[in-house]
Design a binder for these strands. Structure first.
Length: 577
RNA sequence: CGGGGCGUAGCGUAGUGGCUAGCGCGCCUGCUUUGGGAGCAGGAGACCGGGAGUUCGAAUCUCCCCGCCCCGACCA
């Protein structure tokens, strides 16, 4: 039983000045965590219990699925990360350090190498597969910008699993098993989430899905089709190409368009010249970018911005991507800023990518590559030809669903889980092979699966808090029942302690507010802030032989006889789980 | 890394060159109070982020550094 008279806890009346998002404010105010440095947090007793509850649920679901827990050090030697070149490739996000002899070490940002090497060290036959192992570990990543409290930290707890199979079919099965285990895990955590198509990112690999918990403070944007259920991270949305018939479009024609370096100014002058009807969507925006110091040109409809994340996802191997700055334009004096068109891109030697919305046969108004001149009836396939098509334009609410063309919904979310098929990349690099039935050496194929454990605590807080504080799901809360004793006599305190003891005897965890000094109001506020799902008040109604039972989330209150308290709590708890 | 904001007691803050740095919460002592963040009285707690400078005098002005937050870039 947690007793507040001695619990190492101090709640705060004011929001911390350095917190912005609700989970961060409330976890600090309610005394769960404290900030130590940017993206680095300490956990106080209530926080530790909550974090352990989340870990326990995850562990139980992993074990139930037949996955086995292992544990690696966080402090790792450089060598393991050399074979996969990640000592270099991970870049500044890797925490590096040296031992007293000058040997290089790192704090593990992720453990693919270690898992692969561990299996390599133990197993060498196809008969040993399939295998899925996992760990719950503290990870370290020197993020350029930690943010949102414990949603994105530099040190965080993660559950990471890896599956090992001989065949692609086996990988599919392992992947599906993990997907199912994640569904039961997140359901038990009472998280609302969507499973969306994702891009594999720097990890490589093919199939990949993310578990996204919808939340206004989330960092990921995803689309959802209300009709067919299509769901994808915007980075993974594939736009349909619908070629147009350009046979009746008049020949390309240059126009005088003085002082129209922006889409808006261009649209205004077009409407003036041709009596209205033009919008940004009729124009073609020719965005210049530097991709690893190589100039590229990207064509998108004028009413859309280039989404750099989506673009980069499609540019394999490109590490650094930014739109042209003044000194980039200086290197290409033939480009007339504000009046660039794709018509003679071939001459300049710049690779032209087109968003699928700029489909073959579509006709556009675009720059004429001369100051104060644009051109209309510029047709893709006739007047210019892109070198390649690539997803580049931003995705918007109402865009057509790639599967069924219904208008999609856009939402923000926190990424709480990511599952993907790694394939043979790591096994190849690290030489993880087994002998097959024919005694032939085969490279193992792997899957990789992660849940942000500390992040899940924040995500649950984000999805369940209200005006007065946190409000945890039953299994996650630091205790199931919060008993508040009020008054100045001993009786309510003794009664509260007795009820607490009986509840604990019945297997129901209890936090008892047995502090004598604070007024009843202070204790009520604290109980609401801390967010334990069931609150019992032992005080005034004791005169009638009753205690008061409250549902933290719904706010419902009822009076219950003291000797019926345990049964009433058990019933309320049953209704909550 | 680019842009913006900020750094004064455990927390939230006031203080734009001039007395011993002020207030609220929290903390300690005493009395009263005790069902919605109590009242009175008395206390403890601050090298004003750090360094250098300007000045008779610096929390306050200048320069450099450090740290924190937000937007973006970045981020299995």
């Amino acid at each position: 039983m947690l007793r507040m008279s001695t619990l190492f806890l101090r709640t705060l009346r004011d929001d911390p000045a350095d917190a912005e998002v609700p989970s961060h404010k409330l976890l600090v105010r309610a005394g769960y965590v404290r900030r130590i440095a940017a993206g680095i947090y300490s956990w106080l007793p209530l926080g530790v219990i909550t974090l352990r509850n989340v870990e326990r649920i995850i562990r139980e679901e992993m074990d139930k699925a037949g996955f086995q827990e292992v544990h690696f050090p966080a402090l790792l030697p450089r060598e393991a990360y050399e074979a996969t070149k990640r000592w270099e490739e991970y870049g500044p996000s890797l925490f590096r350090l040296q031992d007293r002899k000058g040997g290089d070490y790192l704090l593990g940002p992720t453990h693919e190498e270690m898992f692969t090497l561990m299996v390599k060290g133990e197993y060498s036959s196809y008969k040993d597969l399939p295998l899925t192992i996992y760990q719950i570990q503290t990870k370290f990543r020197d993020e350029a910008r930690p943010r949102s409290g414990i949603i994105r930290g530099r040190e965080f707890v993660m559950k990471d699993s890896y599956s090992f199979d001989l065949t692609d079919e086996g990988l599919d099965i392992s992947y599906q098993k993990h997907r199912d285990a994640y569904i039961s895990t997140f359901d038990r955590l009472h998280l609302k989430y969507n499973i969306v198509k994702a891009v594999s990112g720097a990890m490589g690999g093919s199939k990949s899905e993310e578990f996204l918990a919808p939340c206004p403070t989330g960092e990921d944007t995803y689309v959802l089709c209300p009709k067919c259920g299509f769901a994808a991270n915007v980075e993974a949305v594939v736009t349909k190409v619908t070629p147009a018939d350009a046979s009746k479009v008049p020949a390309m024609e240059e126009l005088d368009t003085p002082n129209t370096p922006t889409i808006d100014s261009l649209v205004a002058i077009l409407n003036e010249k041709f009596g209205g009807g033009f919008t940004g969507a009729a124009t073609l925006k020719n965005v210049m970018l530097m991709a690893d110091n190589k100039a590229i040109s990207v064509l998108v409809p004028g009413d859309r911005e280039v989404d750099l994340k989506r673009l980069q996802a499609g540019l394999a191997g490109v590490e650094e991507l930014h739109t042209f700055e003044e000194d980039d334009f200086a290197k290409f004096p033939t480009l007339v800023k504000g009046y660039i068109g794709p018509q003679d891109a071939a001459k300049s030697g710049i690779t032209v990518y087109a968003d699928p919305r700029v489909a073959p046969g579509t006709s556009w108004v675009t720059g004429a590559n001369k100051l104060n001149r644009h051109a209309r009836y510029v047709v893709n396939g006739r007047d210019f030809t892109p070198d390649a098509y690539i997803e580049a334009a931003e995705i918007r609410e109402g865009d057509a669903c790639p599967d069924c063309a219904t208008a999609v919904v856009i939402d923000r979310a926190i990424e709480i889980g990511h599952i993907f098929q790694l394939g043979r990349k790591y096994a190849d690099a690290l030489g993880l092979t087994v002998l097959d039935q024919n005694g032939k050496s085969q490279v193992v194929t792997m899957g990789s699966y992660g849940i942000g454990v500390s992040r899940a605590v924040a995500a649950i807080a984000e999805q369940s808090y209200d005006q007065i504080g946190l409000s945890w799901p039953l299994e996650v809360a630091p205790a199931k029942v919060h008993i508040v004793a009020t008054g100045k006599e001993d009786l309510p305190f003794d009664t509260a302690a007795e009820i607490g003891a009986k509840l604990e005897a019945a297997g129901i965890s209890v936090m008892l507010d047995d502090r004598r000094d604070p007024s009843a109001g202070v204790k009520f506020k604290d109980a609401e802030l801390i967010g334990i799902p069931v609150i019992i008040v032992v005080g005034k109604s004791l005169a009638d032989g009753n205690i008061e039972l409250r549902n933290r989330k719904s706010g419902e209150k009822s009076e219950v006889a003291v000797d019926k308290a345990v049964a009433a709590v058990a019933a309320l708890i049953a209704s909550l789980s």
